[in-house]
Amino acid sequence: MTRDDALLSVRDLALDYGNGRGVRDVSFRLWPGEVLGIVGESGSGKTTLLKLLGGQLAPDAGTIHYRMAGGDMVDLNDLSEARRRHLGRTELAFVHQNPRDGLRLAVTAGGNVGERLMADGARHYGRIRAAALDWLERVEIEAGRVDDRPTTFSGGMQQRLQIARNLVSGPRLVLMDEPTGGLDVSVQARLLDLLRGLVADLGLTVVIVTHDLGVARLLAHRLMVMQGGRVIESGLTDQVLDDPREPYTQLLVSSVLAA
C-alpha cells in the first residue's frame, strides 16, 4: 500500500513529562482494518503513546496525521478543540484499562451506551434505546440489565460495557489500553474472544496496548515493542514474537514463555 492509504501516520512523536520520561522518536503508520499491538515493560511509554494518539495529551514534537471519514488527512494536533472533541466521540474510541475511567458509574448501562449517540445529536429515545440494547447483546450483556448501573456489574461486564459504549458510534479508530488487564484469567479469555469477534466482524482498526503477549498474539497483526519511551522493534506479530531481533524483545518473549 502507498502512504496515502494510511488511516494514521505518526511521525517523530515526542513527549517529555518534564522528568526525562515519556515517549520519543515514535513513527509508524496504520492502515484500515489493521490491529497494531504495543508491548513493553511497565513504564516504557505505552499509555503515553496511546493518550497522544487519542488527543488526551499534546506532544512536544512530531505529527499525528489522521484520515477523516471524508478522506482529508488532518494533523490531530492542529484541529480546533471543537473538532477534536467531535472526532473523539464519533470516529475515535478510547477503551481504558480500568472501566471505571471510561464509564459513567452513576448512569445506567443504556445511558452509558447511548451517550455518544446523544452527544452527536440523536434525540429519539426509542432509537437510542434500541441501539443500546443491540450493543448490550453484542457484548453479551443481558437486555434485562439495560437500566442497571455499572456499579452493579462485575469487572468483566464493566469492561464489555465500556467497549459497547465506545463502539456504538461506529468509530474508525479504536484505541485500547490493556483492555483485559485486571481481570481474572477466565474472564480475560471470554473478553478476548469477544474482542476478536468484533474486530473481525466490524473490520475495526485498532491500536491495543498490552502487557500480555498472549493477547498480542491473538489480536494483533503487527507489534511495536517499546522500551524507555522508544519503539525498539516492530514487525508482524509472529515475526516479532517467534524471531525477536532485539535482546530486549528476546527477554520479553522468554519471560512470558517462562511464566
Binding site: 471543537a82 448512569v107 445506567t108 445511558g111 451517550e115 446523544m118 452527544a119 434525540r123 429515545y125 439495560v146
Partner: peptide, 22 residues
C-alpha cells in the same frame, strides 16, 4: 465552560434519557 463554548450538551440529554429509562 468548555461544554458551553462547544455546545456539547450530550451529557444533559443522557440525564433526561435516564429519567425516561427509570
Amino acid at each position: 465552560r468548555a461544554l458551553h463554548a462547544l455546545g456539547d450538551y450530550g451529557v444533559m440529554q443522557v440525564e433526561l434519557y435516564e429519567d425516561i429509562a427509570i
